[in-house]
Amino acid sequence: MQTLARQRYHRLTPLLLVLGLLALITGVATIIAPPPATANTEASAQDVEAGQKLFAANCASCHGLDARGQAGVAPSLHGVGAASVDFQVGTGRMPMQASGPQAMAKAPQFGEKEIAQLAAYVASLGAGPSIPTAEQVDGSLGDATNGMLLYRNNCAMCHGSVGGGGALTEGKFAPGLWETTPTHIYEAMLTGPQSMPVFNEANITPEGKRDIIAYLEAQRGGSPGGLGLGAIGPVSEGLWAWLIGIGLIVGITVWVGARSS
């Protein structure tokens, strides 16, 4: 048996197999992995064309075939840029599920390729902010302390002290930011979706935006004090004090009282 086996396989076969497997995995990964964000800056004419088709089929009923919008229904998309499309479609806010106080986030309706094509089409309508590069949104390169100071002055009044979210007028709200991807956070600041103001590059520099992302990412490790209770401030603390604290204590009191009588 052993001699037979030696004849059949070369000594280096296992090594070759491992190397081959590695090559296969990396190859597949390269194909599956999204192209780096920088690739988006150069959109091909085919992308624009495909994007226009997607737009006509999915967006034009509100935004119009020429993407100039309809008064009272949907805004014009000329000049909103690729960043806006990537945010709105990438977070599932567009196409809008139902009209309401504000468009709700949901699972995105399109894959990355389609979103890129839509973005390419809208970007071709007029100059606007483009999708940030991976480096621009890399929180590990940012300064979380400066991010805290910027966040407190610009974001906390709506999104809460650490991004738990908060209410706006007439049923609108600022969403929580703990699940939002760094790219979408950056794009939201850049384009000011819905009720959100635009924080352009002069208002908060690209480095500042990255610092804010770093600060928000620092909040995702949990609270040093235990469960965070939603990080929405003293209201939830009061609720827990009554539900758990007074609830448990009064429950025990009744139990002790019942035992004695």
């Binding site: 002055n153 009044m157 609270s223 009061g238």
Partner: peptide
């Protein structure tokens, strides 16, 4: 979470204790 006091920022969820 709230940061050092500064009269300008007011975050959402700013409430007194219950």
């Amino acid at each position: 979470n709230y940061g050092p006091y500064d009269p300008s920022p007011v975050s959402a969820g700013t409430q007194p204790d219950w």
